[in-house]
């Protein structure tokens, strides 16, 4: 079953850059690499999926949400079904690891007891529960990315969108994060990972979608 479908999507930023022709599908439980050089449009594809941007032409379907029909007030409900991680981790510097992950649950009104249970479980899953009371600035890059992944997973999303998740990490830590994403995928969560690191992609046996100059080449 397809959980993401982008068909003949075009999108243009005011500066003239954007996407010319994007076709992309992600099946339930699948791991897909979206590869391409910097500026090829990888991040824009992800933004279209979590509907921070809307296509000029074509349609983006994510679960039951369609870019042509979705109302702005429904976008938060789409995002609650997605987990999103970035190269720069985007953790809240003013709260500890536990609170960073719990934040995603507090926003959707989860009961405090449930929050504690789920946060501890997901922190255990990403191997960082021993640092749950530490502040983000006391953690290494790899540890911070684990916290970001935990935050993305705590809502049990249908797909994890990862925008260059290893871009700021040394090769060994990048490998550890890749292993973690593999495990997450093996547990059933679909992963769509944008990266420009071809060497890393070659080591994993997953479907690769290339994007160049705003055009996808499957």
């Amino acid at each position: 079953m397809k959980i993401i479908r982008m068909k003949n999507v075009q999108m243009r930023y005011p500066n003239g850059e954007g996407l010319k022709q994007v076709n992309l599908t992600v099946e339930q439980g699948e791991f897909v690499f979206l590869v391409g050089p910097s500026g090829a449009g990888k991040s824009t594809v992800l933004k279209l999926i979590y509907m921070q941007e809307r296509p000029g032409l074509g349609q983006v379907q994510v679960g039951q949400f369609n870019s042509a029909k979705i109302r702005p007030r429904d976008i938060p409900y789409l995002r609650r079904q997605l987990g999103i991680v970035f190269q720069d981790f985007r953790l809240l510097e003013d709260r500890n690891v536990f609170e960073n992950v719990a934040f995603a649950l507090r926003v959707i009104g989860t009961r405090p007891k449930e929050i504690k249970k789920r946060v501890l479980r997901v922190l255990g899953d990403v191997g960082i529960s021993h640092k749950r009371y530490q502040m983000p600035y006391h953690l290494s890059g790899g540890e911070q990315q684990r916290v970001a992944i935990a935050r993305a997973l705590v809502n049990e999303p249908m797909v994890l969108l990862a925008d260059e998740p290893t871009g700021n990490l040394d090769p060994q830590t990048a490998e550890e994060i890749m292993q973690l994403l593999e495990e997450i995928n093996m547990r059933g969560t679909a992963v769509l990972m944008a990266t420009h690191n071809y060497d890393l992609v070659k080591r994993y046996n997953h479907r690769v979608v290339r994007i160049e100059g705003g055009v996808t080449l499957d």
């Binding site: 979590y50 702005p72 007030r73 938060p76 409900y77 789409l78 995002r79 609650r80 999103i84 985007r90 809240l92 510097e93 934040f103 995603a104 926003v107 959707i108 935050r151 809502n155």
Partner: peptide, 16 residues
């Protein structure tokens, strides 16, 4: 700004 971005990414409604 960071907390606003995070709120939006994790599905906070406009009111939140």
């Amino acid at each position: 700004r960071r907390i606003i971005e995070t709120l939006e990414l994790v599905g906070a409604t406009r009111g939140m």
